[in-house]
């Protein structure tokens, strides 16, 4: 008899899935609009594999049945993408999607790795600060956080590389593929570390987790838990830890993917960020378009997972 406690979780999930689909549709419209407005007719390159050069080609396209209206073009473009056809790279001629899958693994390693690493550092600091209400080190910590968030990632990367060469006699610039070398894991760890520390990810994480946990620890129901002699962390865990951790992880994914463009450049990391740089360099828009879509899909997926955790944990979420 759990009648009163049944939560329409499935309905909430359906709603979240619907929102995600709607946003992904919006993402495709934004990308399409940029390509549609761009000079040089990039859409036709995507749809046909070549640019129209002459009136002859134009007549040929009509004979081939390539749509001319913008919505017709959108539908054709979108239909091809649903079949997994993101077009071919202009530079290499290879199909985009398998290429993205190949390099995407490296970017995933980099971003998820740095997410994990920053959490590993941020959580103990934040929990300690919230539990002991540290005020003495607060000002110093705030200043360090400000400075870290303003340090240019690219320069910070060189500092770390320099330190590695001169202090440890190692050369971590060979990129993630240099697995044969000694301490190969270190070559992976350095870019992960740089991406996590710089661009303020770490400091924002610490601040968010500390603020949320301190707020929850001051709640009335935590006082009740203490008054009844129960373990405070058991009561504070959901609202004070699980929810803020998933929130900040989801919120940081786009920043990490953006930061990956620079970090991959500094460290010669063969991922999507470096591919995006190369594509922008060559105006290889099928590739950069694919990267934008995949990155946005990745961001939405992270957000969806966060909403799922939130809904599962928070009894109020399903009654809104």
């Amino acid at each position: 008899m759990k009648l009163a406690a049944i939560k329409p979780v499935s309905r909430v999930l359906a709603r979240e899935l619907g929102i995600t689909a709607l946003l992904l549709f919006g993402v495709s419209v934004v990308v399409f609009a940029i390509l549609y407005l761009a000079p040089g007719d990039p859409l036709n390159v995507l749809l046909e594999g070549q640019s129209p050069r002459s009136e002859l080609a134009l007549g040929m396209r009509e004979a081939l049945g390539v749509p001319r209206t913008w919505y017709g073009q959108y539908a054709a473009w979108f239909g091809k993408m649903l079949q997994g056809n993101f077009g071919n790279s202009i530079r290499t001629g290879l199909p985009v999607l398998p290429e993205l899958a190949r390099v995407g693994v490296y970017t995933l390693t980099l971003t998820l790795g740095s997410l994990a690493l920053t959490l590993l550092i941020a959580v103990p600091i934040a929990v300690h600060a919230a539990a002991h209400g540290g005020t003495a080190g607060n000002t110093a910590a705030t200043l360090v956080a400000y400075v870290l968030s303003a340090v240019p990632v690219f320069w910070f990367g060189y500092i770390v590389v320099y330190v590695f060469i001169h202090q440890f006699g190692m050369f971590p610039l060979i990129s993630g593929t240099a697995a044969k070398q000694e301490h190969a894991w270190l070559y992976f760890l350095v870019p992960i570390f740089v991406l996590g520390i710089a661009s303020g990810t770490l400091s924002e994480m610490i601040r968010h987790l500390r603020e949320e946990l301190s707020r929850v620890l001051a709640e009335d129901y935590i006082r009740t838990a203490r008054a009844k002699g129960a373990a405070v962390w058991r009561h504070a865990f959901k609202e004070g830890f699980l929810i803020p951790v998933t929130e900040i992880m989801s919120a940081k994914i786009p920043f990490l993917l953006g930061g990956a463009v620079i970090v991959e450049q500094v460290f010669n990391w063969p991922g999507m960020g470096r591919m995006a740089w190369q594509a922008a360099q060559d105006r290889d828009f099928p590739v950069i378009m694919g990267i934008a879509l995949v990155a946005a899909a990745f961001v939405r997926l992270g957000n969806l997972l966060q909403r799922v955790v939130f809904t599962a944990v928070n009894p109020r979420a399903s009654r809104e």
Partner: peptide, 14 residues
């Protein structure tokens, strides 16, 4: 044992 004011916020909402 203790009971408080504003019981709705004194119970764990989660």
């Amino acid at each position: 044992a203790m009971i408080f004011q504003n019981p709705r916020s004194a119970l764990n909402p989660y």
